[in-house]
Protein backbone atom coordinates (compact mmCIF):
# COMPACT_ATOMS: atom_id res chain seq x y z
CA UNK A 1 0.00 0.00 0.00
CA UNK A 2 0.99 3.61 -0.48
CA UNK A 3 3.33 5.39 1.83
CA UNK A 4 0.85 8.21 2.34
CA UNK A 5 -1.85 5.85 3.58
CA UNK A 6 0.58 4.07 5.86
CA UNK A 7 1.86 7.27 7.41
CA UNK A 8 -1.62 8.69 7.77
CA UNK A 9 -2.84 5.48 9.38
CA UNK A 10 -0.15 5.68 12.04
CA UNK A 11 -1.58 9.05 13.08
CA UNK A 12 -5.21 8.20 12.53
CA UNK A 13 -5.29 4.94 14.46
CA UNK A 14 -4.83 6.39 17.96
CA UNK A 15 -7.12 9.30 17.10
CA UNK A 16 -9.86 7.00 15.91
CA UNK A 17 -9.54 4.78 18.95
CA UNK A 18 -9.72 7.80 21.25
CA UNK A 19 -12.73 9.06 19.34
CA UNK A 20 -14.42 5.67 19.68
CA UNK A 21 -13.91 5.82 23.45
CA UNK A 22 -15.32 9.34 23.48
CA UNK A 23 -18.40 8.12 21.62
CA UNK A 24 -18.76 5.21 24.03
CA UNK A 25 -18.65 7.45 27.10
CA UNK A 26 -21.00 10.19 25.92
CA UNK A 27 -23.54 7.69 24.66
CA UNK A 28 -25.81 7.58 27.66
CA UNK A 29 -27.52 10.91 27.13
CA UNK A 30 -26.22 12.11 23.77
CA UNK A 31 -25.75 10.56 20.35
CA UNK A 32 -23.10 7.89 20.58
CA UNK A 33 -22.84 4.70 22.58
CA UNK A 34 -21.28 1.29 22.44
CA UNK A 35 -22.51 0.37 19.00
CA UNK A 36 -21.21 3.43 17.18
CA UNK A 37 -18.04 3.49 19.24
CA UNK A 38 -17.42 -0.14 18.42
CA UNK A 39 -17.92 0.50 14.73
CA UNK A 40 -15.39 3.35 14.78
CA UNK A 41 -12.85 1.21 16.62
CA UNK A 42 -13.39 -1.65 14.19
CA UNK A 43 -13.01 0.79 11.31
CA UNK A 44 -9.69 1.90 12.78
CA UNK A 45 -8.36 -1.65 12.76
CA UNK A 46 -9.81 -2.27 9.32
CA UNK A 47 -7.95 0.80 8.08
CA UNK A 48 -4.76 -0.55 9.60
CA UNK A 49 -5.36 -3.88 7.87
CA UNK A 50 -5.79 -2.01 4.57
CA UNK A 51 -2.70 0.12 5.01
CA UNK A 52 -0.43 -2.67 6.16
CA UNK A 53 -1.82 -6.19 6.04
CA UNK A 54 -4.19 -8.44 7.92
CA UNK A 55 -1.48 -10.19 9.90
CA UNK A 56 -0.20 -6.83 11.13
CA UNK A 57 -3.69 -5.81 12.20
CA UNK A 58 -4.13 -9.07 14.07
CA UNK A 59 -0.83 -8.54 15.78
CA UNK A 60 -1.80 -5.03 16.77
CA UNK A 61 -5.08 -6.29 18.16
CA UNK A 62 -3.20 -8.94 20.19
CA UNK A 63 -6.41 -10.76 21.10
CA UNK A 64 -8.44 -12.95 18.72
CA UNK A 65 -11.58 -10.98 17.71
CA UNK A 66 -13.68 -14.05 18.49
CA UNK A 67 -12.52 -13.82 22.10
CA UNK A 68 -13.55 -10.18 22.08
CA UNK A 69 -17.12 -11.25 21.23
CA UNK A 70 -17.14 -13.67 24.14
CA UNK A 71 -15.66 -11.18 26.59
CA UNK A 72 -18.06 -8.47 25.45
CA UNK A 73 -21.06 -10.76 25.91
CA UNK A 74 -19.83 -11.66 29.37
CA UNK A 75 -19.40 -8.00 30.34
CA UNK A 76 -22.88 -7.11 29.10
CA UNK A 77 -24.35 -10.11 30.88
CA UNK A 78 -22.59 -9.26 34.12
CA UNK A 79 -23.86 -5.67 33.96
CA UNK A 80 -27.40 -7.02 33.78
CA UNK A 81 -26.86 -9.38 36.66
CA UNK A 82 -25.70 -6.65 39.02
CA UNK A 83 -29.38 -5.78 39.44
CA UNK A 84 -29.96 -9.17 41.05
CA UNK A 85 -27.68 -8.18 43.92
CA UNK A 86 -30.09 -5.32 44.62
CA UNK A 87 -32.98 -7.81 44.30
CA UNK A 88 -34.38 -6.05 41.24
CA UNK A 89 -35.32 -7.44 37.80
CA UNK A 90 -32.56 -8.31 35.34
CA UNK A 91 -30.95 -5.28 33.66
CA UNK A 92 -32.33 -2.67 36.08
CA UNK A 93 -29.79 0.17 36.08
CA UNK A 94 -27.69 0.47 39.24
CA UNK A 95 -25.96 3.79 39.88
CA UNK A 96 -23.26 5.04 42.14
CA UNK A 97 -21.53 8.42 42.31
CA UNK A 98 -17.82 8.87 42.34
CA UNK A 99 -16.37 12.25 43.20
CA UNK A 100 -13.63 13.26 40.83
CA UNK A 101 -11.40 16.16 41.84
CA UNK A 102 -12.32 19.30 39.98
CA UNK A 103 -15.47 17.89 38.33
CA UNK A 104 -17.60 16.88 41.27
CA UNK A 105 -19.70 13.74 41.57
CA UNK A 106 -19.71 11.65 38.38
CA UNK A 107 -22.57 9.17 37.96
CA UNK A 108 -21.31 5.71 37.18
CA UNK A 109 -23.81 2.99 36.37
CA UNK A 110 -24.37 -0.44 34.92
CA UNK A 111 -25.70 0.98 31.60
CA UNK A 112 -22.15 2.15 30.90
CA UNK A 113 -20.80 -1.32 31.62
CA UNK A 114 -23.45 -2.76 29.33
CA UNK A 115 -22.38 -0.31 26.63
CA UNK A 116 -18.80 -1.38 27.12
CA UNK A 117 -19.92 -4.96 26.50
CA UNK A 118 -21.72 -3.87 23.33
CA UNK A 119 -18.58 -2.01 22.25
CA UNK A 120 -16.43 -5.13 22.63
CA UNK A 121 -18.98 -7.36 20.87
CA UNK A 122 -19.28 -4.96 17.93
CA UNK A 123 -15.50 -4.67 17.56
CA UNK A 124 -15.22 -8.46 17.78
CA UNK A 125 -17.98 -9.23 15.29
CA UNK A 126 -16.89 -6.62 12.76
CA UNK A 127 -13.24 -7.63 12.89
CA UNK A 128 -14.06 -11.34 12.70
CA UNK A 129 -15.99 -10.69 9.50
CA UNK A 130 -13.62 -8.13 7.96
CA UNK A 131 -10.36 -9.88 8.77
CA UNK A 132 -11.50 -13.32 7.69
CA UNK A 133 -12.95 -11.94 4.45
CA UNK A 134 -9.75 -10.00 3.81
CA UNK A 135 -7.65 -13.10 4.36
CA UNK A 136 -9.57 -15.14 1.80
Amino acid sequence: MSLILRTATRFLLPLLLLFSLFLLLRGHNSPGGGFVGGLVAAAAFALYALAFDVAAARQLLRIDPRQLIAVGLLVALASGMVAWLAREPFMTGQWSYITVLGIGPVPLGTPLIFDLGVYLVVVGVMLTIILSLAEE
Partner: peptide, 24 residues
Protein backbone atom coordinates in the same frame (compact mmCIF):
# COMPACT_ATOMS: atom_id res chain seq x y z
CA UNK B 1 -38.10 -10.20 41.00
CA UNK B 2 -38.09 -13.54 39.32
CA UNK B 3 -34.77 -14.91 38.15
CA UNK B 4 -36.26 -18.19 36.96
CA UNK B 5 -37.92 -16.51 33.98
CA UNK B 6 -34.71 -15.10 32.56
CA UNK B 7 -32.52 -18.13 33.18
CA UNK B 8 -33.70 -20.16 30.15
CA UNK B 9 -32.32 -17.32 28.02
CA UNK B 10 -29.19 -16.64 30.05
CA UNK B 11 -27.99 -20.22 30.53
CA UNK B 12 -27.61 -20.96 26.80
CA UNK B 13 -25.94 -17.56 26.37
CA UNK B 14 -23.43 -18.24 29.13
CA UNK B 15 -22.81 -21.70 27.70
CA UNK B 16 -22.24 -20.28 24.23
CA UNK B 17 -19.85 -17.66 25.59
CA UNK B 18 -17.96 -20.26 27.61
CA UNK B 19 -17.66 -22.49 24.56
CA UNK B 20 -16.51 -19.50 22.52
CA UNK B 21 -13.80 -18.72 25.06
CA UNK B 22 -12.67 -22.34 24.88
CA UNK B 23 -12.45 -22.12 21.07
CA UNK B 24 -9.22 -24.11 20.82
Amino acid sequence: MNVLLVLPILIPLVTAVAALLAWR
